[in-house]
Nucleic acid binder design. Structure first.
Lengths: 107, 107
DNA sequence: CACTTACGTAAGTATATGCTAACATATCGA
DNA sequence: TCGATATGTTAGCATATACTTACGTAAGTG
């Protein structure tokens, strides 16, 4: 649900993780190395992000590779668009149609 | 800070309140009437929204009139834009320049 | 002035959250 | 199969959050 997305984004560490994973695939350990918190804490954050549909995981050997899933933010985007006027709403529509076209189903 | 904004948006009631106040001015009591929680609880939510820069208040007689402040969401918007590609980043820029031009200072 | 109306604030409480340390699991190389 | 590497899971704890009830305050009204 979109609520999980907002909740997930409320935590600064998780937002940083998302940015770290934008367009790149990184292992859990690599991600952890960017933060001062323990690895388990990072693991828990990654779980929250995954449950919110903001990241996807792929297992490769003993490692788990995470990657951001931008489509997970569409709900937030829609919410935001409400607060701008018609002109912006048109931009939003154009963006959704053009950018991450029909292939992306909201989770 | 933008962090307060994300935090504020994490709460469903607060998101509803924002939508309720989008483009309209409503009194605290009127807002409260839309929810099942007590009026003080609503008051506390409104405070969080105000501190995040997402609403503004205006006193009129004995009442306090709240109104959404869409510019408060610009930080979130910027964050989101990072996750779409160049084309979208251009749209974002255009929107920010055109829509809520120079008159709106980020709080 | 009381008295009412419209709100915010304070105190207290139950639950959610973020973190750590300790433990479990799974894959790969020797 | 044994050990090392990479990561998730559990239990426990401190702090943050969302509420409620009780109380404080300020602007109209009689």
């Amino acid at each position: 649900m979109t609520n999980d997305v907002f909740r997930a984004l409320a935590e600064p560490h998780r937002r940083e993780m998302l940015q770290l994973l934008r367009g790149t695939e990184r292992s859990a350990g690599e991600i952890a190395s960017f933060f001062d918190i323990t690895r388990p804490a990072v693991s828990q954050h990654l779980r929250v992000l995954a449950e919110a549909g903001l990241v996807v995981v792929r297992q490769e050997g003993t490692r788990r590779l995470y990657r951001a899933r931008p489509e997970g933010l569409l709900g937030v985007r829609a919410f935001l668009a409400e607060f701008w006027d018609q002109r912006l709403r048109r931009l939003k529509q154009a963006a959704e149609e053009e950018e991450y076209g029909a292939s992306n189903r909201e989770r």
